[in-house]
Design a binder for these strands. Structure first.
Lengths: 226, 226
DNA sequence: GCTTAGTTAATTGATAACAATATAGCTGAC
DNA sequence: GTCAGCTATATTGTTATCAATTAACTAAGC
């Protein structure tokens, strides 16, 4: 067991804080941010804040307006669609890789994440179910052992969680959510790489269309409000 | 016509310079870098260099060693394999999207890139052919109109070009290179999304295995030299 | 009234200085 | 001789300051 103790620099800590505020909507889309304002708020220097904002820029959560400041990025329907199609491609690859290297440890972790999803899907609110859904896919990416894939997935994680948070009404039917994921998990656990890949890809593709429909209602108001 | 005039900040310019040096091998894997040394070399301040290095860190070209410095990242066979499989997934998605939205303008740009590949494959050295290969795929990603996909592809571009540069002997046979790509281009131009996706994916998967074999020879020496 | 040049306030771009940390080499007890 | 602890040095982490740029405002000229 590695006692990693994780020394975290101030800029990464601030990035984490701001990221959470954006994902949770506390900082709304389009909201303007200035380096000095955040620096005052956190009692840190501008350089540190600047570094944190640059991190979030890479993740697509804020836009940099040269010499004018920063703004929380807008989450358009197009963005959500694009992110969903990227998830499809990446998660399908992950599913294939996990199936190819499945063992007891991985089965255990996979089942744990799936159980959590079942729990949340049945008893809890839609948003928590959506988060459990994301966690399950995150788990497969982790288990794939593909470092570059994992890094990429994390990089888009903020934006994905953001539209998940926004579109929590996506999951109307918990049982359906479970039914959709069960065959994927089965395929991975049985080591059928081809099938795992195919199912994971199709699942996300289908969800993509539903997502766009769903977000249209939630976002169209804000889009016109500019 | 937009006269974009592209104002570039110093940190991005330095990042570009360093990136090229790493891709071309002028800065070799494992080489140590210090902020002050680079700052002196370019007559810039440490803050600017720091920002540039952080950019390259995101692209996976340098590693940050807390309180100890920076180092050009090692390019392992595992890395090359992972990057190749990621390319497969992303380029397959791109091929599908381009096929779905193909028009005369896109056909023209695609054919131009393909012609360039044919030219380099026949007359020129292997490295230039490999670069033209990369440019062709870059072109499809661009034409897909998928902004997030494009950003991600660019983000891994540095590392990909790096192993392309390293493994220039990969292309032994120019005609084969052309023959491999022709059906993909045809499928895209004819608007067959499903087929485009399938062919692009398979092409890269196959190349992946060849790549690993090829790199094993080139990298194994350096790996033991540590 | 409309345009245009100049002015000012706000904000980042870039630099320089200070603080914290990790590594390596030295010293001395055992 | 070896190893724990100390110290010096190199290097980054963080802060503070100066410079450059933008955008909004103002007023003069037509």
């Amino acid at each position: 067991m590695e006692e990693q103790l994780e020394r975290r620099t101030l800029d990464t800590q601030t990035a984490d804080l701001l990221r959470n505020q954006i994902i949770s909507g506390k900082l709304g889309a389009g909201e303007r941010l200035t380096e000095v304002q955040i620096a005052d708020q956190f009692q840190l220097s501008r350089g540190t804040i600047r570094s944190a904002l640059q991190e979030l820029k890479k993740e697509g959560l804020v836009d940099q307006l040269p010499y004018r400041g920063w703004a929380v990025s807008e989450l358009t329907i197009r963005d959500a669609f694009e992110l969903q199609s990227l998830r499809s491609a990446l998660e399908a690859l992950a599913a294939k890789l996990v199936a190819q290297t499945i063992d007891d440890t991985k089965k255990k972790r996979l089942n744990a994440a799936f159980s959590q999803l079942c729990l949340k899907a049945k008893s809890s609110n839609a948003r928590e179910a959506a988060v459990a859904d994301y966690d399950l896919h995150f788990c497969t990416v982790q288990l794939s052992g593909h470092k570059h894939l994992f890094d990429m997935y994390k990089l888009m994680g903020g934006q994905v969680q953001r539209y998940i948070y926004e579109a929590n009404m996506l999951v109307e039917n918990g049982d359906e959510l479970i039914a959709q994921h069960a065959p994927i998990i089965d395929a991975i656990a049985s080591g059928d790489a081809k099938k795992s890949e195919q199912l994971a890809y199709e699942h996300n593709e289908k969800e993509g269309h539903k997502l766009v429909d769903c977000l249209e209602g939630a976002l169209i108001k804000r889009a016109t409000k500019r």
